[in-house]
C-alpha cells in the first residue's frame, strides 16, 4: 500500500516535471508540426542510407546556395556510405584558401576530405546582403536547435501556403504557419523535380523534404546510431547486473527480514 503510494507520487512528480520542461521550451505562436515516422527514431532507429545520400544531394543542390554546414567535414560523408573517391571529388569541387606560399601569398587550393564544408558566404554581412537582410542559419545543428527539430523542419519545408487575405505579407517574405510569426524570409526552397536523384527516386517536394531532414539529422547527430546501439547493450547489461544485485541483496538481508 505504502509502496504503491510512493510509486504514484513519484509518477506524478515525473509527469509534472516533464510538463514543466516541455512548456519551458514551447516556442512562439507557431502551429504544432505533424508527427512523421523517421527511420532514426525509436530505440533501434538507424539512418536510412539511401535517404541520407539523397538528402545530401538536396542539401548540395538546393540549400548549400544559402546555408552552411560548417561543423561537418567532407570526410564524414564516408561514415554514411560515400566512397573515398566520391568524397575526394566532392571536396575538390570547392576552393579554399591554402597555407601561405613561399612568397607569403595565400592562394586557393581545391578542398580535401579533411576540410569542413565550405559555407556559401564569407561572413554574416555577406549572407545578409545576399538574402534581403535575412540571415540563413548554418544547418549543422539546426535539428537540435529547434524544438522537435526533424518534424519541425519537415513541416516548414512543405508548409508554405497562400496567406489568408487579412494577413499582409511584405515583399521578400513568405507565409508559413510553422514558422514562429508566420512570415519567413526564405522563399520556398523545394520544388518538384528540383533535384535529379542519382538513384532515380521521384523528386517530389515531400520526398526531398524527408530526405534532407534525414541528412540534416545525421549532420546534427552523427553519433546517433552508435549511441543507440551502445545504449541497448549498456541497459541490457545494467538490467542483468541489477537483477543479480537484487538477488544478492535478498540473500544478505535474509537474516534481518
Amino acid at each position: 500500500m505504502n509502496k504503491i503510494r510512493t510509486a504514484l507520487v513519484a509518477g506524478v512528480f515525473a509527469a509534472t516535471a516533464s510538463l514543466g520542461f516541455s512548456s519551458a521550451n514551447a516556442a512562439g505562436d507557431a502551429v504544432h508540426p505533424p508527427e512523421h515516422h523517421w527511420s532514426f527514431s525509436g530505440l533501434f532507429g538507424t539512418y536510412d542510407r539511401a535517404a541520407l545520400r539523397r538528402g545530401f544531394e538536396v542539401y548540395k543542390g538546393v540549400c548549400a546556395g544559402c546555408h552552411g554546414l560548417r561543423l561537418v567535414a567532407y570526410r564524414n560523408l564516408m561514415d554514411i556510405g560515400f566512397t573515398e573517391d566520391e568524397v575526394k571529388a566532392i571536396a575538390a569541387e570547392v576552393d579554399v584558401p591554402a597555407e601561405p606560399n613561399e612568397d607569403g601569398e595565400i592562394e586557393d587550393r581545391p578542398g580535401i576530405p579533411a576540410d569542413k564544408f565550405k559555407s556559401p558566404f564569407a561572413n554574416e554581412n555577406a549572407a545578409r546582403a545576399g538574402n534581403n537582410g535575412a540571415l540563413p542559419p548554418d544547418l549543422s545543428l539546426i535539428i537540435k536547435a529547434r524544438h522537435n527539430g526533424a518534424n519541425y523542419l519537415n513541416a516548414l519545408l512543405t508548409g508554405y501556403k497562400d496567406a489568408p487575405v487579412d494577413k499582409k505579407v511584405p515583399d521578400g517574405m513568405y507565409y508559413n504557419t510553422y514558422f514562429p510569426g508566420q512570415l519567413i524570409a526564405m522563399a520556398p526552397p523545394l520544388s518538384d523535380e528540383g533535384v535529379d536523384y542519382a538513384d532515380k527516386t521521384k523528386a517530389t517536394v515531400k520526398q526531398q523534404a524527408e530526405d534532407v531532414v534525414t541528412f540534416l539529422t545525421w549532420a546534427a547527430q552523427p553519433e546517433l546510431e552508435e549511441r543507440k546501439r551502445t545504449g541497448i547493450k549498456v541497459i541490457l547489461f545494467l538490467l542483468l547486473l541489477t537483477g543479480l544485485l537484487y538477488v544478492v541483496k535478498r540473500r544478505i538481508w535474509a537474516d534481518v527480514h
Binding site: F21, A24, N25, L43, K144, A145, R146, H147, G149, R227, K228, T230, G231, I232, V234, I235, L238, L239, L241, T242, L245, Y246, V248, K249, I252, W253
Partner: peptide
Amino acid sequence: VKDMFGLGVFLVFFSLFIFFAPDYLGHPD
C-alpha cells in the same frame, strides 16, 4: 549491497537519458 542495488536501478534510469533522450532535459537554444 542495498546501495549497490539502488545504484543499478539509478544507472538504468540515467542511461535512458544518456543514450535515448540526451537533449530532452536541455533547451534547444
